[in-house]
Design a protein around this nucleic acid. Structure first.
Length: 804
DNA sequence: AGCACGCCGACT
DNA sequence: GTCGGCGTGCTC
């Protein structure tokens, strides 16, 4: 086995296959599948993943790999196979599939440098070279090109005066600390101490310390404990009494936090009935998927916790996925509280280094449970006993970049390999999952009652058109305002929800109707008040907010649509006594600010919590008795077949924040379309009715869960090129489909232009097309040349979540 | 993706 | 003549 098949770090179609390399003699037996290695590739050096070992290769002139980047494989056999599966199902490159499974810290960093040839004599070299190197023996390539010219460097390299160096590195190093330990036995230490002159007080103090300590001590600790400086320690090291070593430590994001231990709670009847089949499944090593449908406040988390407990008792591991925005400290506390330091946490708030360390704890089997966002589904456990996906309907489980995978699909795929159950939990299951539960593909577990039998909050729907007719032009209906005032008086807390950050969604001239659009994209600019700028959320374009209409020069510029910033301003005007905390991307971008704001709210430092999406989930504060949804329809009119579903889910989730404890809760939903079934049924909190209604709509329009869909998006700087390519693709795919399938296109994408590229798409709807992925791959191969050199981009999304 | 190689026009 | 532009093809 002296040949390794290696997938190299080049995301391109032609390179998307294993390359064979010789394993140098001294590395035979060391190199294993799943390891990262450095290999020569053309003139450079790059990273690659070993996918297999073999005796022979069809390729004649093999190069030898250079060295491994890991001591143990970063991908085990299961994950390597999972990578192949990802490649097949999402049509991504193998390398992208492997990269997504490991922490970003392990992604290679490349450096290109120029080095003076060891044989060259500095004095004899041309003056130009001396000035580039400026007495150093290496400089960065970029620096050198700036100081001279490409051709000059090439010529000098050819003559052997300089050489090009390619360096492959990890992005993050392991964190190491200096520690001090004793080289001598206790007796020898005492002896040395006696021999020291009387005035050497500090060194004696240090020796005393080691007379009572056997293990190495962290340098920092030692210094602060004894009040000495490094020079004292250095003296002892020189005398060969002590020695220095480096110990590897984890960066602990939750270092200075104490988690109070919690014990399993007694279960309600609902919980009892739901957990029984899950426990049985764990017991019998059965591969089953459960849909745990429990209303908000029904206690799904306790079911998760006790299921995990069972898994741990059996000596197995658990993965818990939680949507990024509800991966709050509150949530972490619940898991760490129950399982202590057996829990690793993975989310985007961690630094690259912290993520790496949490991942290593999993890899080294030092933890048994991982709680994390989407990518935690790839946690390198060996003995999975359960996978839990909380809020399974959340769209953030679908990755929108390559590989465009859905964590739910990956979870099920992994559960097959591990013979373990998957639990999908939600108060508002996705239509797809609920339909599968209805068909018996998933096992439905229902928890229709809240714990302690609290009733679900009463919901009132307010027709904002009527308010307008009655002359109320503010963003608060009279009912909502009244109720807010009432709660302020009673010192109870209020949550106001608005699905839009910033200030206004678009800016229009009232005289001529001109809307300020982005120069590069076909989308209106969003006004941000604090810096008086108009921003494009797609390409980042910024412009000053106009004072006059750019078209007709009128001064009647109006800001339409309401964002959280604007609501905050308005609140301070009409209810100056109310203390408001605003939570959106803008106020929580700093590390830890999310937690701080929530803590403030919990401690009662504010009356009103005003926020976007991120407050819709997981909040569980006893004093919240009123939830106001300022505008229920913001997502309803998006060009997306799931917009009704998303609206219903969001409204139901937000409503669930009210009255979770002793105090009764109330919800006010303001809307311009009260007659829409997703608003109406969210008001009634009737999931099953909504499901029935929405299924009819999906069936008529041939959308999931009745049909699968795949979306091809073509983009090009020239409109005609984009259209013509999409046209050809549509025709080609159409010819490969069976009669029952539908291929729609070419149509302009909902955002027809982003960053000066025109976008056209083709939508495929099908029930069964086992050959579709093959056809799509062939199509991509066919356009390979134009993608590389013709400025063409083609993206394929199998089971897309957003159709933009 | 990078990088070398090669072929063509513009210039010291 | 040569420098430097970019189109083409290869990377175990």
């Amino acid at each position: 086995m002296n040949i390794a098949s290696i997938v190299v770090d080049v995301p391109a179609r032609q390179i998307d296959k294993p390359f064979d390399y010789l394993i140098p003699d001294h590395l035979i037996g060391v190199i294993q599948p799943g390891m990262r290695v450095i290999v020569p590739f053309g003139p450079r050096k790059i990273q690659g993943f070993v996918t297999g070992l073999k005796e022979t290769s069809d390729y004649k002139q093999l190069k030898a790999l250079i060295e491994p980047m890991d001591l143990t494989p970063v991908l085990n056999n299961e994950l390597l196979a999972l990578g192949d599966w990802l490649t097949e199902t999402t049509l991504c490159y193998k390398i992208s599939a492997y990269q997504v499974m490991i922490p970003p810290a392990l992604k290679a960093k490349y450096e290109k440098k120029l080095k003076l040839s060891s044989t060259a004599n500095l004095e004899e070299l041309p003056f130009d070279i001396q000035s580039i190197f400026n007495n150093q023996d290496t400089v960065s390539w970029e620096e050198a090109v700036k100081l001279s010219s490409l051709s000059f460097l090439q010529k000098e390299a050819a003559e052997g005066n300089i050489e090009i160096q390619y360096i492959v590195k990890d992005r993050v190093k392991k964190k190491k600390l200096k520690a001090i330990y004793s080289l001598l036995s206790k007796e020898q230490l005492s002896f040395e101490k006696e021999n020291l002159p009387a005035h050497v007080v500090k060194q004696k103090k240090v020796i005393d310390f080691f007379l009572h300590s056997d293990s190495p001590v962290e340098m920092r600790e030692l210094l602060s404990a004894l009040g000495v400086t490094t020079s004292v320690i250095k003296g002892l090291i020189q005398k060969k009494i002590l020695a220095e070593m480096e110990i590897e430590v984890y960066r602990d994001p939750y270092e200075d936090r104490n988690f109070t231990r919690t014990e399993p709670l007694p279960l309600t009847e609902d919980q009892e009935n739901s957990i029984r089949p899950i426990l049985a499944s764990i017991e019998e090593n059965k591969n089953e998927t459960f849909l745990l449908y429990g209303v908000t406040g029904s206690g799904k988390t306790e079911v998760y916790l006790q299921s995990i407990q069972k898994v741990l008792q059996d000596g197995k591991e658990a993965i818990v996925l939680v949507p990024e925005i509800s991966l709050t400290p509150q949530m972490v506390r619940r898991f760490k509280g129950r399982f202590g330091d057996q829990v690793a946490v993975l989310h985007s708030g961690l630094s690259v280094g912290e993520k790496y360390d949490e991942w290593r704890k999993i890899q080294r089997q030092e933890v048994k449970v991982v709680v994390g966002a989407r990518s935690a589904i790839f946690a390198p456990f060996q003995n999975l006993g359960i996978i839990i996906i909380d809020e399974e309907h959340e769209t953030s489980y679908k990755q929108e970049e390559n590989p465009k995978y859905h964590a739910r699909d990956v979870a099920i795929q992994r559960s097959i390999k591990h013979n373990c159950p998957v639990v999908l939990g939600s108060a508002t299951p996705s239509l797809d999952s609920y339909a599968r539960a209805q068909k018996g593909v998933y096992k439905l577990l229902a928890m229709p009652k809240r714990m302690n039998n609290q009733s679900l909050p009463a919901v009132e729907i307010i027709d904002m058109r009527e308010e307008l007719r009655d002359g109320n032009r503010s963003m608060f209906s009279r009912t909502l305002l009244e109720k807010i005032k009432d709660r302020l008086e009673k010192k109870e807390q209020i949550v106001l929800f608005l699905n839009k950050r910033g200030h206004s969604s678009f800016v229009m001239c009232r005289d001529c109707g001109y809307v300020v659009n982005c120069h590069n994209c076909d989308i209106s600019l969003t006004y941000h008040r604090f810096n008086q700028l108009m921003k494009c959320h797609y390409c980042g374009y910024e412009a000053a907010a106009p004072k006059h209409c750019p078209e007709c020069n009128s001064e009647h510029i109006r800001y339409f649509g309401t964002g959280t910033q604007k609501v905050e301003e308005e609140l301070s005007k009409i209810l100056p006594e109310a203390k408001v905390i605003r939570m959106d991307v803008d106020t929580t971008s700093r590390k830890g600010s999310h937690e701080k704001l929530l803590d403030q709210f919990q401690e009662g430092q504010a009356d009103i919590l005003l926020g976007t999406q991120m407050i819709a989930k997981g909040l569980d504060f006893p004093n919240i008795t009123l939830v106001g949804v300022l505008s229920a329809d913001t997502m309803l009119h998006l060009p997306d077949f799931r917009s009704s579903e998303k609206t219903f889910q969001l409204l139901t989730q937000v409503s669930g924040r009210a009255g979770r404890h002793e105090l009764e809760g109330e919800v006010v939903i303001q809307t311009y379309t009260p007659e829409h079934y997703s608003v109406e049924l969210a008001g009634e909190q009737d999931y099953r009715k909504f499901y029935a209604q929405e299924m009819i709509v999906r069936k008529i329009h041939k959308y999931p869960p009745f049909y699968y869909i795949s979306l091809i998006t073509v983009s090009h700087e020239e409109l005609l090129k984009a259209v013509s390519v999409t046209e050809k693709i549509t025709a080609y795919i159409q010819s490969k489909l069976s009669k029952d399938s539908i291929c729609l296109g070419p149509v302009a994408s909902p955002i027809p232009r982003i960053n000066n590229r025109y976008r056209y798409q083709c939508l495929i709807k099908y029930k069964r097309e086992p050959e579709l992925n093959k056809s799509l791959k062939k199509m991509l191969d066919n356009y390979q040349q134009e993608i590389i050199s013709g400025g063409l981009q083609i993206s394929v999304d199998v089971n897309p979540f957003i159709l933009m």
